[in-house]
Design a protein around this nucleic acid. Structure first.
Lengths: 355, 355
DNA sequence: CTGAAAGCGCTTACAG
DNA sequence: CTGAAAGCGCTTACAG
């Protein structure tokens, strides 16, 4: 037991008991006085004044032990240190704060098995719900969440043992359609998509959007996720049937642009490029502003917060399958030229002979 | 009371009582069996097996209610949505996770009075310690933290009612010295520092580092934090006694570079520029890679985590004053020319006459 | 409206 | 080593 000082208040925190004693009522009455939205009896008013004067701060841990809800939500990231992760967290945090929830945040930092551990740890914290951002691992603890009826939602993407979670993820459908419309208006009819190994979203999606927009699509697999831009451009140039536009994640797009410069391939005259700001890339600098499909995950955070709050407070059902939220925007930079003029460039004609 | 299913286990979580009952011991024994590092008696072994089989997950809230420590740490950000904030959080999170602490994260998002509110809220969560990142506001709740002996540490910077907190912040001393050495080796003897209103760190610091390195320093105040780059460059050019190098936060440096281009001032021939990656800027693109003092806040996070853990576990005293952690690196881009040749440029001579 | 009491799930002196 | 009991700070039926 802690020491009491001369006023009879324990040295650390003021408790409800202290407030009740000072106000001359029972703890039950004190509890109710503080809980009710507006004071009813005169006792209520007095209790509140005493609480304020003593600097009473309710103990959430004690409250939640009794009420079986902690007003706490866990967010586990596979990687936290990226702009996309931050923007998501920011939006999520704002949406949940508003309703009195506090966020536990943890990051696996790419360490094997760490994600699973953190999910388990948040179970011990008795979070009211859990968000898993790009989850991967065994997902063994998910059974316990299900058993305790604690909702778990995957964000962005999911893998391995987390595959069966409901997902709220980003889609760039709208922006992709804008981009395709723009390409068509410039006379392009075919695009090439550089797909790094293991990267399905959003690069994978762009292929389908392009096809749906009536474009011919050629997919180039980037082995091990590592692009050799000069090598790629050489064989690209040698290909008579090459598409006039290349779509690549931002990182690769930048390197293509640099390599093109070295090879005297002029963008956007000889080659048009669209970058996709995907989930892990910082913004590198280029001489020519990139035309870009910009992935902005804030919408995902907003939607995730709203969905969860509706479920937790309103009792609405959680989405059972995957839900895709519009999170793209089309930014015209300067790397898209005319599709008609791209083919007959002299530089490229030389290549055609060789191919 | 919740329903019990056929095995006698409550439907939600398995409790210690459940484990004890199944193992045929008292809760006290069960508690001790699970708490001790290695099993001693044979009872201990059995309890552990039962706990594992039932999927027992200890309730941290209940534990902390008894033990008066929550193994929880609060982090309140003035702004979370910036690369610097993320890098800090990432490092902080890693350093504290390791010791079993979970992080509550919240952000004020620049809303008036919000920071104070969040600090108060974490008091209700009974965090074992609190980090305030760039705190500003009344800081009224700090008295309660002090009374409850909960350590509070400011990170990066502090203001207003948070002024008296101990601070762990970044210093770019090392990088600044490297930069100055480089400037001197290129023949520069004077630098100009563009100081936005209200921005003290790290721009303010650079002035002192430059002076300490024997440079002549000229400070330009940027009114309202908004730079008119073309206007600035015109009067700069007209000044016969102008320094040959300008140091500005990254954002301003980029705009200076663009404006210089318009005015036919060639960098680095006519003007050398150093950018400082300060706390709020994203990385914009420029044609010429910026020479830069890069602020990397991860070290601050690592140091903050270490300091706090030493205090919480080791019992060491918290730093009473401010502690500055080396967090800069010098990156030579391409915007520094020769100091000797900069002065006699024809373009600038014309300006000199007018000045 | 009020108070006494039970209980949330744990830990920890206290006896045996 | 073990168990019964008290207690952490709350909330919430239950009587009055």
């Amino acid at each position: 037991m802690r020491n009491r000082n001369e006023t009879g208040i324990r040295s650390g925190h003021v408790t409800l008991q202290d407030v009740a004693d000072t106000a001359g009522v029972s703890v039950s009455t004190a509890s109710r006085a503080l809980a009710s939205v507006r004071a009813r009896g005169k006792n209520d008013e007095r209790v509140r004044k005493v609480a304020a004067k003593l600097g009473y701060v309710p103990n959430e841990a004690a409250r939640s032990l009794r009420s079986e809800r902690t007003m706490t939500i866990g967010v586990v990231f596979a990687q936290l240190n990226s702009p996309l992760a931050t923007e998501l967290l920011d939006a999520l945090s704002a949406g949940l704060d508003e309703h009195g929830y506090s966020l536990f945040v943890a990051t696996a930092r790419g360490v094997e098995g760490r994600f699973d551990q953190l999910v388990q740890r948040f179970l011990e914290r008795r979070v009211d719900a859990l968000f898993c951002v790009n989850p991967a691992g065994k997902g063994a603890a998910l059974r316990k969440y299900a058993k305790a009826k604690i909702p778990v939602i995957a964000l962005f993407s999911k893998a391995d043992g987390y595959e069966r979670l409901p997902l709220i993820g980003p889609t760039i459908a709208h922006a992709a359609n804008e981009a395709m419309a723009h390409l068509r208006s410039r006379g392009h009819v075919a695009v090439g998509v550089l797909r790094p190994a293991g990267m399905s979203r959003p690069i994978e999606g762009i292929r389908d959007f392009a096809r749906a927009a009536g474009m011919k699509v050629r997919v180039y697999d980037v082995a091990d996720g590592l692009l050799d831009p000069a090598g790629f451009l050489r064989s690209y140039r040698a290909d008579a049937a090459r598409p006039t536009v290349l779509i690549a994640r931002q990182n690769d797009a930048v390197r293509l642009l640099e390599a093109a410069d070295q090879l005297s391939i002029k963008a956007p005259r000889d080659l048009s490029i669209i970058a996709i700001r995907d989930r892990t890339q910082q913004m590198p600098s280029t001489r020519l502003p990139l035309s870009m499909i910009h992935l902005n995950p804030a919408n995902v955070g907003v939607e995730a917060a709203r969905t969860l709050v509706h479920h937790l407070i309103g009792g609405s059902a959680l989405p059972s399958g995957d839900r895709l939220v519009d999170a793209g925007s089309w930014v015209e930079g300067g790397t898209i030229g005319s599709g008609d003029s791209a083919a007959p460039q002299p530089t490229l004609k030389v290549a055609r002979r060789r191919g």
